Each structure stands twice: as C-alpha cells, then as structure tokens.
Amino acid sequence: MSPIQHLACACGRFALDVEGAPIARVECCCDSCREAGARMARLAGAPRVLNEHGGTGFVMQRKDRVAFVAGAEHLKQFRLAADSGTRRVLATCCNTPVFLEFKGGHWLSLYAGLWRDGALPPLEMRTMTGDLADPSALPDDVPNHRRQSLRFFAKLMQAWIAMGLRVPKIEVAGDLRL
C-alpha cells in the first residue's frame, strides 16, 4: 500500500488524507462534468477544473481510504438537477472542488486540482469523449474512450470487492445552489 498523501483546499482550511494507490486517474469529458465545471468557475476565487479540451481530471479513490482531517464543516454539495444521481462537493472556504460522488458508489472521484505539482498520479484514460463536439482533437497520449470502458468498470469492481462490497456514507455540511 502506498503511503498517506495529505491534500488540502487552496486556502488550507480543509484537508484530507488519502491512503493507498488510487483506483484510477481519469479525465472525464461528459456533458455533466463540463456543465459543473462551468458553474463552479463562476464562484469567487474558484480554481479552474476544466482543461483546454473540456475534460475534468479526477483521481478515483476508495471511500474507505479517504479521511477528512480538518475543516469538514466547509464542505457543501450541489447537484446539476434536483433528481441527479451525482453530487459535487466543494470546500466553501475558498470554493475548491473536492470530489464528485455517484449515488451508491463505493469510491470518490477526487478533483485532480487537490494534488500539488508533481504529486498527481499519471493519467490513465479519458472517458465519455463521445460527448465532445470533436473528440478527434484530443491528444492520443492515453486511451480516449467514447463511454466508460470495460477496464474502467473492472477497476471499480476490483476495488469494491477489496472493500467487502461496502458503500461508506460521506456526510457534508450542507447544500449549495449553483
């Protein structure tokens, strides 16, 4: 198992520890991540999450290997629609995106911006490139999958089995309207 990585929001009031290797380091190009990235970018001082071709970087980590160690009272969630199965969570002290969570998911998709220079795991794949207007403009440095690939789902299933098929709950302080 890899050592513990200490991560924090931009201002340092919120911090979390991540233990062990990630499930995967991905870049999502779906319409929802692009819409959420645009909404978050309108917040005062918010770091940019969308890259030059519209992707959002994530490090997928088992929930049982993530611990909030300071400032959890700053965490607030928002959904793109009231009935959305996903929520995005920010540290409202400085509007730093922290994670995306799928309803019923056993992992957190931590925003790549939490990692400092040189510490971010290498990109493994892009997903949901079929949502882009021109996916052919993407670099070919990693596989560019139109949707989620079999490898993507296999990594998630392997992590879930290693967790004993548990789905830990992650509580946050409240809601945001974006």
Score class of each variant (00 low, 15 high):
Q77Y: 11
R62L: 01
R87M: 11
S32K: 15
A81H: 14
T86A: 02
A44E: 13
G12V: 03
P22C: 07
D83P: 04
Q61S: 09
Q61H: 06
R65S: 02
K76M: 09
V26P: 03
A21P: 14
C30F: 01
A81F: 01
R25H: 05
A70R: 13
I23W: 00
E27G: 09
A15H: 09
A10E: 03
E27Q: 14
V89W: 08
T92K: 05
G12M: 14
H74I: 10
G54E: 07
G55Q: 03
A15Y: 12
R79G: 09
R65K: 14
C28G: 05
A8L: 06
G20Y: 01
R42V: 00
S32W: 15
G20K: 00
R88D: 05
L7F: 08
D31M: 07
R13E: 11
D31Y: 04
A70S: 08
A41I: 00
M40W: 15
L43P: 11
R62H: 04
L75P: 14
R13G: 08
A81Y: 10
A38P: 06
D17K: 14
N51Y: 09
V89I: 12
H74E: 08
G57T: 06
K76I: 14
M60F: 08
V66R: 01
V18I: 11
E27M: 09
C30S: 10
C28H: 10
K76Y: 11
R13H: 04
N51T: 09
F58H: 08
V49L: 15
R25M: 10
L80C: 00
C9K: 04
R34V: 03
P22M: 05
A81E: 10
V26A: 00
V66T: 04
G71F: 02
Q5A: 04
L16G: 07
T86N: 08
C29A: 14
R87P: 04
F58K: 03
C11V: 11
E27V: 06
P22S: 08
L16D: 10
A36M: 06
A36T: 11
G71C: 09
Q5F: 13
S84L: 08
G37M: 07
D31E: 05
C33L: 07
A70V: 01
D17Y: 07
H74F: 15
A91S: 14
A41L: 10
L50F: 10
V69M: 06
M40E: 15
V49E: 08
D64I: 00
V49G: 15
A70Q: 11
R88V: 03
C33V: 03
M60E: 12
A36P: 14
V49Y: 13
A67R: 13
S32T: 14
D83M: 06
M60I: 05
R87I: 05
G20L: 01
F14P: 08
C33P: 08
D31F: 02
G54Q: 05
L80D: 12
R13K: 15
A72V: 13
E27C: 10
R88W: 12
G85D: 08
D83S: 11
A38G: 11
G57E: 10
I23S: 00
V59I: 05
